[in-house]
Design a protein around this nucleic acid. Structure first.
Lengths: 260, 260
DNA sequence: GTAATCACAG
DNA sequence: CTGTGATTAC
């Protein structure tokens, strides 16, 4: 089975590209981020017409996540609150978390905050959010040993995941962000992409500005993280750059994990 | 020779439609209104590539007029000020007037203010502007007997030029507007379109809202007004509705005057 | 209904 | 550079 993740930067603007992609890439599960639309305006029918069940959590203008699945998901939940309780409802105002179970695999789709710039209020929010995610995962991992977390993490952990040298002041590569994500992975999660590919220059996002894609000035910030039980079943993990080459593309491109 | 007028509602948005139209309608002169772009950003080269000389006067966001001509124009001037002097510079802040001479014919391209609603500040501005136009034309007509004024007048003089009954409160059909334009025409100008067509339901503008074009709920507000010497040479005056049928059209469509 | 700008976010 | 949304204008 295949599980893909794609930050589409507006599902309404990208709908045709998403449906086209699903027709040539009929993955079992597609995790979207930055849908940028409230649930009532989500273009459900175009996706349902392709045989997918939809689970969505969106807001006006910003953020928003969606899960498309070939079979109905069970135990779907939205946000941190269902697991962590009412102390975290404020963090759920931004729609960044949705999860459900496909067969025996829990899939968690995340849109990690960008953080804007190191030291900003948004940076603090990102670190708080990651700490909360860690708390959330501890509970989830008590309940399942087959978890696949995927999404736009807005963090690149290693130099080879970035087209240029970075400094501690670079958002998405700062020590505190990397430490927060590393602590999370130490709960027992593996970067599925690096099971199969050790090359530098493997990117999933290229800034729209200054011809980032044309010059391959990208970052690998869209990830699949899996528990040991799923690591055993991983067959491939690939980045599909084709959608990024289209006219009016998202700044991100899909990443696909294949499990047996 | 053919002289066309077209309110394009943004030359940048409509550029391809304009160049397509000029290729099938290689008129000698095209007068544009509502170009909505400052002169430095006007897409000159696409028009020049079709063999036209350009004379433009634009501003940011609003208004803006342009003259395209197959041969260089002489005695080009912009605004009322070159003729009426510094007392009218304030009226020239909005770019609505451009003129030049093609062979022996002076062409004056106008974008008359819309006026918003009867009694508003913009309505007063429209009436003041029309009074100033009258002063301007008195001087122009002292110098030439071959004048063709064309543009978006934002006034329909007769009931047959409008799809519905109007009241004195209707902008573009109010008595004061009609009187102001009638006084101008009494300087010796003739509506070229009505030399050839007496039918009602001949429109050049349809509101984008409520399917105005589909229901033919239009107004004839784009005109050619000519002096007697040009009236003698007029062969035809037609409205080309084809561009209004395209995807993402201007709300106006071209009107073409043919002279011998 | 369509387009332009601005402010905001990424 | 791209997207959304508020605003203004026609």
């Amino acid at each position: 089975m295949k599980i893909a993740t794609w930050n589409v930067n507006s599902i309404r603007t990208r709908l045709e590209q998403v449906t086209d992609w699903l027709q040539t890439n009929p993955v079992e599960v597609l995790c979207l981020q930055e849908t940028k639309v409230v649930d009532t305006d989500f273009p459900r029918s175009a996706i349902e017409a392709l045989g997918y069940h939809l689970y969505i959590s969106g807001q006006k203008s910003y953020n928003g996540v969606a899960l498309f699945s070939k079979i109905p998901l069970t135990d779907v939940s939205i946000g941190f609150t269902p697991i962590l309780g009412p102390e975290v409802t404020e963090l759920d105002e931004q729609k960044r978390v949705i999860t459900g179970v496909f067969g025996d695999i829990r899939i968690l789709n995340l849109y990690v905050p960008n953080g804007s710039s190191v030291g900003s209020d948004k940076y603090s929010y990102k670190l708080t959010w990651l700490k909360t995610l860690q708390d959330y995962l501890k509970i989830i991992l008590d309940k399942t040993d087959k978890l696949c977390i995927c999404g736009d993490f807005n963090i690149a952990l290693e130099a080879r995941d970035i087209h240029r040298k970075t400094t501690p002041n670079d958002i998405m590569a700062s020590p505190a962000e990397r430490a927060a994500l590393t602590e999370i992975l130490e709960l027992g999660l593996t970067d599925a992409f690096r099971l199969f590919n050790q090359e530098p220059g493997q990117f999933s996002w290229w800034d729209y500005r200054a011809g980032g894609f044309a010059r391959n000035r990208g970052w690998r910030i869209d990830h699949h993280y899996v528990t040991p039980k799923l690591k055993e079943r991983a067959i491939a993990c690939t980045i599909d750059t084709a959608p990024r080459k289209l006219l009016k593309p998202s700044d991100h491109t899909p990443v696909i994990l294949e499990l047996e």
